[in-house]
Amino acid sequence: MTAGGWYEPGSSPVHRVPAGWKFAALLALAAAVFALRSPVWLGGICAAVVLAYGVARVSLRRCAGVARSLGVLAAFVFAVQWWLLGADRALVVCLRVVTALAAANLFTITTRIDDVVAAVEGGLGPLRRFGVRPDRIGLIVGLTLQAVAALSAIAAEVREAARARGAQRSVTAFAVPFLVRTLRHADELGEALAARGEGDR
């Protein structure tokens, strides 16, 4: 995991905004960024997001990690879009992608997953009468985020094992054990959830 990341405990104003509002703000920002076409406005919002990293007092190491992976992505997107659509449009697309991803990253860094899950559950509460189970959906959100970490850990181990056997370029040497281990992980996780009473009721 380089860009994606985990919660970093803190007491900044950004940390203290309730998760539900923060999530709504993130969605609104993403929608706004994709509706706007002016590079000036987009640049302004992008600068505001960068400023928010400062307000949240995210560690420099973390910021550098985010900047590095977003930089690589932005360079790639810019190159492709420039070739396809020209420099002006490429800049707009790049600013959109970078702003949305940087904001999403800030959200994960400053928000506890538990709070996100609770916010999702709370937000979906009114749908309970239509047969929606908010606690289930909350758990799925939590597990999805968790799966990113679990799968990247498995991928790293499998890649290491392939390298140890001199097979770093072989696709099958990666794909087969990765798939097998992922399925086994899914089995074990299911069993652990059942043991913890998930699904009882």
Partner: peptide, 8 residues
């Protein structure tokens, strides 16, 4: 690893 279901 497969028993831990939440991030922290």
């Amino acid at each position: 690893d497969s028993q831990i279901v939440m991030p922290t």
